[in-house]
Design a protein around this nucleic acid. Structure first.
Length: 269
DNA sequence: ATATCCACCTGGCGGC
DNA sequence: TGCCGCCAGGTGGATA
């Protein structure tokens, strides 16, 4: 589920309540997620949480002794609850704070991850990540350059986290629709002005989605347990065979890199 | 290097 | 009501 807007929504919800709080207890209720949760995360008990940041789709909880990385996978969400609430099915990991609140990771499919690192910048899952899409350096020039030698479909390129992070399947489809670019086009076929349209569209879609609190298809909820409302604003995702909002032609879909891909043949060139 | 495919999971849905 | 197959927001790793 969670792409950049959902992860960022979660981060913004948690930060004001948890920053500078002491981590009283860390519980691993189920250790086998994508990887086994390392026991060393428990060594951060009694540490002060200095910051909650985000890199791509990873949340980074930092203390003076090290950081905990949390990835939400496809079905994960974090929720802040008063301590000692009964555990729900698929509550796998928990941090109890000095203010009486407990942060729980619920992830039914268990594609998510909880990891420990001394230094997030050098962690192998983070150190090869590409640019943040809302950074000003993610611009037409950057993208155009990245696409020059590749015959891969443009949709795969913008979903490639070694190029740009945080754009998953929903927002890749939405961004390409808004930019009027067919997702199946070869990367190197895009002109500089098409790159500009795509970059602009991606930023717009991501910003609007963050503003709406993310997209809830099924599982996602924010730190307060509320869904995101961007699903109501999706222009193409989930609309196979329905009519394009621009031109009323039926929306086509197929698989690209095993992911559902949707486009309008008449709007997206 | 690059592209493709698989793997890891649970749960919800439609069809029979 | 039940079972079956299919589908889903991600991404590392194996393979060719």
């Amino acid at each position: 589920m969670p792409e950049l807007p959902e992860v960022e929504t979660t981060r913004r919800g948690l930060e004001p309540l948890l920053k500078n709080q002491i981590i009283k207890r860390i519980h691993i209720h189920r250790s086998k997620l994508r990887w086994v949760i390392p026991k060393i995360v428990k060594s951060l008990e009694q540490q002060i949480l200095i910051s909650i940041t985000r890199r791509g789709k990873y949340l980074i909880f930092t203390t003076q002794k090290g950081s905990i990385l949390i990835h939400l996978g496809m079905s994960g969400y974090l929720q802040l609850l008063p301590e000692n609430q009964p555990l729900k099915k698929h509550d796998h990991f928990e941090m109890a704070f000095g203010n009486g609140y407990s942060l729980r990771l619920n992830d039914s499919r268990r594609f998510g991850a909880v990891l420990y690192t001394q230094d997030p910048k050098t962690h192998p899952l983070l150190n090869r990540l590409g640019i943040e899409p809302l950074n000003k350096n993610f611009n037409s020039k950057f993208l155009f350059k990245k696409l020059q030698n590749t015959e891969r479909a443009i949709k795969l390129c913008i979903m490639d986290s070694s190029i740009v992070v945080g754009i998953g399947n929903i927002y890749a489809n939405e961004s390409l629709f808004l930019a009027k670019i067919n997702p199946n086009r070869q990367g190197k076929s895009l002109t500089i002005s098409e790159c500009n349209a795509l970059v602009t569209s991606a930023k717009k879609v991501l910003r609007k989605a963050i503003k709406a609190g993310g997209t809830t298809i099924k599982d996602f909820q924010n730190a307060e347990g509320k869904p995101g409302y961007f699903s109501q604003k999706l222009k193409i995702y989930g609309r196979t065979d329905k009519n394009c909002y621009n031109c009323n032609q039926p929306i086509r879909s197929s698989r690209l890199g095993q992911r559902i891909t949707l486009w309008c043949d008449s709007c997206q060139i």
